[in-house]
Amino acid sequence: MYGTLSKSETLWPVFIVIAGLLLPFFANNYQLYLGCVLIVYVVLALGLDIIMGRAGQFAFSHIAFYGIGAYATAILQQRFGVPFPIGLVIAVLLSAGIAWLVAMASVRLRHIYLGLATVAFASAAQWLAQTWKGVTGGVDGMRLQPSDMIFFTSRTDASNFRILAVILAIMLLLNFLLIRSRLGRAMAAIRDSEHVASVSGIDVRRTKAWAFVISSAYACVGGGMLVVFNSFIDPMNFTFAPAVLLLTMLVVGGMGSVAGVVIGSLTMGILPEILRSTMGDFIVWQEFVYGLILVLSITLMPQGIWGLVRNRTESKRSAT
């Protein structure tokens, strides 16, 4: 795992950039919009996987940093005329700073307390987005102008999709680099056993804090991406429901592996479209179905879809 990137790990981001640039020639606007949604899901899920799948810590605050990222880039762009790329960098620094504060306060908490603290943080952030009307527009939401990309303004679904594909490729590459870095291995070590990690000379608190900050930065980038292709955001984007949806993506695909996370986010992202066309009047059961999927996957396939696939190929290999 450690060391330089493998061939496939360098090829995937390149492939995504090429595919992202070419796809808009073949897809209609609706498909491109759906594609943008899926790309944001993948980035968010990759980020959540860093803290949960890689470092093994339960954190629920991802959705809050998603919101901070979205509101920060939107406000910088609308009110202060900051171009999107610069605004996104400022937003990431801002949420990394907030994440650092939260991490400093909560990494000494073990297990469930970290979870509780982050649940409370996420709920408080959601409350702030609803209540702080002067800045966020409250429950009425914010109208967004097309994003200013310094060299051009992104007005069409095609150009939005291309921008998001490039960001996705960068985030994926960074993710591969992180996993192969010293920090990435330290995270895996504390996930497997905090005690063993700490006697091996790993600073457990520092590692947890970094995992939390990086994971939150991913969420923030996801928020910025939301601003690119949406004309409207409101606090409903950042409630418990999407937070649990993100969790479901990790569980369904398989935590702790990039392939699993991507499979999970694509599956859960496309599922509403499939349900809409197949379930008809049963669409009211959607929430129940999501809950059922979550319970069934966590009980029956702990490693997710990707785990099942991997087990099957491995058993085939050992049989021959």
Binding site: V244, L247, T248, W285, Q286, E287, F288, V289, Y290, G291, L292, I293, L294, V295, I298, T299
Partner: peptide, 11 residues
């Protein structure tokens, strides 16, 4: 799993 249960009950 408890998150899943909460979705199911709400649903």
């Amino acid at each position: 799993a408890t998150f899943g249960l909460s979705l199911m009950l709400k649903g």
